[in-house]
Structure formats: C-alpha cells, structure tokens
C-alpha cells in the first residue's frame, strides 16, 4: 500500500514538472521582460535577474525591486515601440468584432431556432454549405470588396473583414439553445402584451447568457490573436496595427532589443490569459460542444 502511495506521489511530481516545462516559454517571456538585454544574451535560461534574491520579495524590501527588475523594458515597449497604440487598436478591434458577431448570431439563431417561415431551409442550408464549399484564397476578393467600399484604410474595414461572413458554429449554438426554450414562455409574454422584438430582448436574450458567454470568449480569443487579416489590412496603415502585427514589425526593425520584445509579448498575453481564466468554463464547454455536436 505504501509503495502504491509513493508511485502515485512520484507520478504527480513528474507530471507537474512536465506541465511546468510545457508552459516554460510563457514563464521565460515574463522573466525576460524584467531583465536587461545584456543578461538575456548571456544565457537566457535563468528565470531571475542576476541580482535577484528572494529576500527582495519581503514587503520591506519592495523599494529595491525597481532597481533589480527592469520595468524600464515596459516603458520602452509601451511608449517607444508603440505598444500603447497597438494595445488600444487591439482592444477596439476585438470588442467591435465580438459585439457584431454576437448580435448577428443571436438574431439569426433566434429566428432559425424558434420560427417557421418560407425559405428557412434554404437559409439554413446556405449557412451550413459554406463549411463544405472548397474556397480558394478568399482574402483577395475580401480585400477588393473592402477597398471598393472605401474602407480599405480604416479600422471599420479591418473590423468588417474579420467580423463579416458566417460564423456557423455560433449560429448553431444559438439555434440549438433557442429551440429548446419552452413555447409557454413566449405565449406568456405575448399575453402580457410583449411583441416579437420585446420578447426577444427582454425574455429570450437574457436567457441565452451561457451561449453569449461562450460566443464571447471564443470570438474574443480569436480576434485578439488574429494575425492574417490585420496583417493584410494594415499594410498601408502602420498606426492601425494590432498587437500581433505590431510585435512582428517591431522585431523586424529592432531585433536586438529582446527585453522590450518580451515586455511587449507580456503586455499582449496578460489580457488574453486573464479573460481565459475567468471564462474558462464557457470556453471549454464551447469547444467541447463543437466536437460533440
């Protein structure tokens, strides 16, 4: 029995070491963002800056932390390397896309899930067919279309390119959810005198919070991390770059300032990791649903 316990303990230990090694690139990024560039080039595997001692973490020694940890990297990334601009752009871009996508998919899913009307199956079929039609390089017509609309060099064009189109998974999630709500609820609200629109906004939409949360988290992470669309659509507008694209161009121009690069990476990772940890349940439910469904 004792041996079994030992094996179990050893297994947990090995598994823990393995998972910590798994997230090491993340730990490296954060620790590098607090080092000097010279330290980084001379063996970047050490986690803590050379002058670091554990006693610095005592509250009475916090004053000295600033001398050892290079917070300067952050100000270089934020002000000089333009990460402040990239950060605001990413925030704007992400929230605009998420709001558009949730609105679109909730409206579509509600109607498809609860009502019968002529043409319903045509619309349903057209939405699902997009998953099976082989597409070529669709970014070129998209690029041409956005330019033709006169939005080629604007944030609006960037958002539209990312949010437009058909988000089949979310539509199906909303459709399935709304179709399961009992009919009595709707009838009750109609007896109370609520019309189609009011029933949707005051009764149905609040009920759909779990689906909204799932859509929010999936699309938030998607847009925050988006690279291809922002890369193509900000070619002529460096000031519209998002964090992913901004980081890429920063490294191309200043490949020697690794510490500022790490600081910039940390800046762009923190929001997404925090959002993920908060909404983890909905996120896991969402992607698990996509494989079960």
């Amino acid at each position: 029995m004792k041996r079994r316990k030992l094996i179990r303990f050893l297994f947990h230990f090995v598994f823990l070491v393995l998972t910590l090694a798994w997230v090491y690139p993340l730990i490296w990024t954060v620790s590098s963002s607090l080092k000097t560039n010279r330290e980084m080039f001379s063996g970047s595997v050490k986690l803590f800056p050379d002058k670091f001692e554990w006693s610095f973490l005592l509250p009475s020694n916090w004053g000295q932390l600033e001398e050892i940890l290079q917070f300067d990297n952050y100000s270089r990334a934020w002000y000089i390397a333009n990460f402040s601009q990239y950060f605001i752009n990413t925030l704007l871009f992400t929230f605009a896309v998420v709001i558009i996508v949730i609105t679109l998919c909730a409206l579509t899913g509600y109607v498809l899930g609860r009502y019968d009307f002529p043409g319903k199956f045509l619309i349903m079929g057209a939405i699902i067919a997009t998953m099976f039609i082989p597409a070529g390089y669709t970014i070129i017509p998209l690029w041409q279309l956005i330019n033709a609309l006169g939005l080629g060099k604007s944030m609006a064009g960037l958002v539209l390119a990312e949010a437009g189109g058909t988000h089949v998974l979310y539509i199906l999630l909303f459709t399935a959810f709304f179709s399961r709500i009992p009919k009595e609820l709707e009838e009750a609200s109609q007896i109370d005198g609520a019309g189609f629109v009011r029933t949707f906004f005051t009764i149905m939409l609040p009920l759909a919070k779990p689906v909204i949360a799932t859509t929010f988290i999936l699309q938030f992470i998607n847009s925050w991390n988006s690279f291809f669309v922002p890369l193509v659509f900000t070619i002529h507008r460096p000031d519209l770059r998002t964090l992913g694209v901004g980081m890429y161009s920063f490294v191309e121009d200043n490949s020697s300032d690794l510490a500022a690069m790490a600081a910039g990476a940390t800046i762009s990772f923190i929001p997404i990791v925090v959002i993920f940890l908060i909404f983890q349940k909905y996120f896991v439910d969402g992607i698990a649903g996509s494989v079960k469904g």
Partner: peptide
C-alpha cells in the same frame, strides 16, 4: 489549464518567442 494555456496565446507572438 496549464496544458491549455498555449492555445490562447497569440500565434504570431509565439512564433517570435520561439
């Protein structure tokens, strides 16, 4: 959660860190 963390990171930035 730890196994999942890399999934939510920005791929383009991951490439640079790598």
């Amino acid at each position: 959660t730890l196994f999942f963390l890399p999934v939510v990171l920005t791929m383009s930035i991951v490439g640079i860190i790598m």
